[in-house]
Amino acid sequence: MNIVVCVKYVPDATADRQFESDNTVDRVGVDGLLSELDEYAVEQALQLKEKAGEGTETVVTALTIGPEKAVDAVRKALQMGADKAVHVSDEAIAGSDYVATSLVLAKAIEKIAADSGSPDVVMCGMASTDASGGVVPAMLAERLGLPQVTLASVVETQGDQVRVKRDGDTATEVIGGTMPLVLSVTDQSGEARYPSFKGIMAAKKKPLETWSLGDLGVDAGQVGLAAAWTTVEDTTARPPRTAGEIVKDEDGSGATALTEFLASKKFI
């Protein structure tokens, strides 16, 4: 079985995230890491491999698109247990929108397929932690002509059959599909493992390739900020909220003050 797991390198959400003067995300000035939501995807990919067992050869390839530092994202995936990694890096990609990002991912997956066999599962996170579009997996399914079994909180497989639980907006659904398919998993799908010391050491010897747009046969004019089908006109920091009144509860004074406040704002 072949599994490609798409992982994104994102600025740390707990750091002071900023935009550049061209309205793109500052991906250099702020510390980055493998998107926490993509750790769940790596975990599910590894569980599929473990379930397939020793007898079947399962290869988990971690794939990322991003600047030089984004290699950290696939390194972490290798440390967790992925077998191979691909880092697509090309200055022309900077500022890409959903459409271009999904194009480059699809082309990279096609190249992985040509080099080492078609993926049975293209695994994704539910959304990135920076832009949190939650749309790239569906776009990948559309581009690759694969079924999409997305936003899974529980994943079950039997041979090439996949069943997942999806907490929809108005219903909880069970979605079924047959491999090959695009699968995305939520943060309810089960805690991701930490890299072990052994895993960290082993990762250093695992194959890691860096590809440019040229390697993928993608014309630089199709991607990046200038080619985007959407444009950002302006980014503004939200004004900080003005400091509110904070009272200490003593012998029930808190409840009274709270009630007074709610009444003064006409919520009662």
Binding site: R241, G244, E245, I246, D249, G254, A255, T256, L258
Partner: peptide, 24 residues
């Protein structure tokens, strides 16, 4: 959370909420 609030009560929710609910 207190950095965001318009109004905050430092206290135990198990006593503050029932008392406030009663008053409301």
């Amino acid at each position: 959370i207190f950095e965001l609030v318009d109004f905050g009560v430092v206290g135990d929710l198990h006593t503050v909420l029932p008392a406030a609910t009663e008053q409301i």
